[in-house]
Design a protein around this nucleic acid. Structure first.
Lengths: 353, 353
DNA sequence: CTGTTAGCGCTTTCAT
DNA sequence: ATGAAAGCGCTAACAG
């Protein structure tokens, strides 16, 4: 039962109620209604109360769109993501927690996820929303960040290198070293690497960590063992197959993120290899899904939710024009040992760390 | 009067480039630019090309806000959620997958997650966004859905009962029966139930399932064993403590969702009880997090991602005004056995199924 | 204290 | 084929 009889029954179905409707019903001008809504000075208490009541009755709520078009201040911050997948949704959880009590609201925007649109979505989304609608943006894993002519932007795990704009990321290099050392300590000597894309910063850092850890252990990198997995499950399949079809195939694979590690698991199963007995696998990210695989994935944890929270804090500071503290927050990574790693089948025993 | 001419380098930093800038730079009217953008008839091929080029050069992208205010058609659908937590983000993943290739984009909106605002956010969000900005909305676990004067709405797992508007949900009742039967088959006789809120539909159905399964097994329901956990981890703590402090405490607890089940795990640990030896726990939802607990949670799976995908399909059909197929999609639930359930410590042995 | 008037950036008749 | 002008819902001067 709707408790409003001002409008003829059903009339509210035709158009959503606007500020004009309220003004008319209250017998005042729209300007006055606007003032009441925004608690501006210069409205008689009586009038204000009356208008409030009408607003209540009509169930009026101001249009975010119209308001923002005019006032350029919305108290909404945007999270721009290419797609809602395990990585970005994990970060989203962190932003959601961090935003509570700040008086801001969250608007997560994602395109249709057209695969071809790998590059360029950042600029597009930002242009479409900024200046209006959002007061600031958090951009997830962007490849390019052009802040020009837009609201403040914080990048999370940007692929283009942490130079452009304020950034929150995790220590990819150290994480990769951890992962590789873990494999070395188990006794692996032929360790494959399934990278992201060479033009992406996080991917490159992970490869660096892998190479350096091997070098430290005095093991030369076999170029045959380094492939590109593109950070995606399906993309990882082909290079993994190549890797595992090698005459002298690796006894372990370090994949640059969890999704491609899961892709490795897929191929191993397809090839009749048992993980971890025949092949050890390490991922990167520690998205919740990595614990659900069979066997559960050993991986490098990034504090994804914390990264989201930090990004919110950083962005809010920028939006408020506060002296922007540090402009680059780097969070630590750590190894999560689960079931996908073990000593190689015919291991020569433990290697010295 | 803002005067910016050809845009000297860096000038685009002052204001984002608008359709007016493009028009000026191209030497045509804004109307013409608009026509080019929207591929309307009545523009000379030469003009069109020229304008296109200028748009490219300036990096112009039309404002979603301004456009939607005027045209009331945006090709964006909104996902309205109270908060980004494991449940809603799971659904989000499904919507993201389903939206690809449809030509629509996704806009997930969440308030500051003010705890007090448990009720009423639905109407507020919808009013703020609908009519403009979004062509349709998917509302997550709303308690009330008033579609009046707004765009088409599909509800996911609504708490108010699946009568109001098109709905996608999972079979809570059957799931609860499965969970309870599982516990009974393990030999449990004193089974506690940690419900949601009695006014919520899914919560009620889960309680019904619990009661009916017990009744079928010929076991009377002890009112002392039925408490309210509010679907939240922290809220679940107090009632759980009461349950486990009972003289004749339950040997198993069925919690109405995973978050409150995790709350049960917290309290059990705090009380020095080992799960599943001293206490069996079953949850509901099967969010990824439920596999990460110690021990991993036995739970009832809802096809969360699939629910999101179905909601998208249903909504798009409504937006297009197609004859709306079924208006209520109910997906099946199933039991996921993991480590949090076992026969009771001093079990009288297996009970007959 | 209140109403009138201008737009915000865009689309859409309707003239030209 | 093109542009002038109106207006979407709202806020912000500025008059009265």
């Amino acid at each position: 039962m709707t408790e409003r009889q001002q409008l003829p029954p059903g009339a509210e179905d035709l158009h959503r109620v606007t500020i004009t409707d309220v003004a008319r019903a209250a017998g005042v001008s729209v300007a006055t209604v606007s003032k009441v809504i925004n608690e501006r000075y210069g409205v008689a208490a009586r009038t204000s109360e009356h208008v409030q009541r009408v607003i209540e009755q009509l169930g009026y709520e101001s249009s975010l769109v119209a308001r923002s078009l005019r006032s350029h201040k919305t108290h909404v911050i945007g999270i721009l993501v290419p797609e809602f997948e395990p990585f970005s949704t994990e970060v989203l959880k962190g932003t959601s927690r961090a935003i509570t009590g700040t008086g801001y609201e969250l608007l997560a925007y994602s395109g249709g996820g057209r695969a071809g649109e790998v590059v360029g979505w950042e600029r597009r989304y930002l242009s479409r929303l900024s200046g209006t609608l959002i007061d600031g943006a958090i951009m997830m894993t962007p490849t390019v960040v052009r802040t020009a002519g837009s609201v403040p932007v914080v990048a999370i795990d940007p692929h283009a290198g942490p130079a452009d704009s304020p950034t929150v990321d995790a220590d990819s290099y150290a994480g990769a070293v951890l992962a590789t050392e873990h494999l070395l300590q188990l006794g692996h000597r032929r360790i494959g690497f399934l990278g992201g894309r060479p033009d992406l910063d996080s991917a490159r850092l992970r490869e660096d960590g892998y190479r350096d850890a091997l070098a430290t252990a005095g093991i030369p990198v076999d170029p045959d063992l380094v492939r590109l997995g593109g950070y995606r499950r399906q993309v990882a399949a082909a290079p993994t197959r190549e890797l595992l079809s090698l005459a002298d195939r690796p006894t372990a694979i370090f994949a640059a993120n969890d999704l491609s590690a899961i892709g490795v698991l897929d191929v191993a199963r397809e090839l009749g290899l048992t993980v971890p007995t025949d092949l050890s696998v390490v991922g990167f990210d520690n998205v919740p899904e990595s614990a659900l695989t069979e066997p559960p994935l050993t991986t490098v944890q990034q504090p994804l939710q914390e990264m989201g929270a930090q990004a919110v804090h950083l962005l809010l500071r920028l939006v408020h024009g506060e002296p922007g503290a540090s402009t680059h927050v780097r969070l630590p990574t750590s190894l999560v040992r689960r079931g996908s790693t073990a000593p190689p089948a015919a291991a020569p025993g433990r290697a010295g760390g």
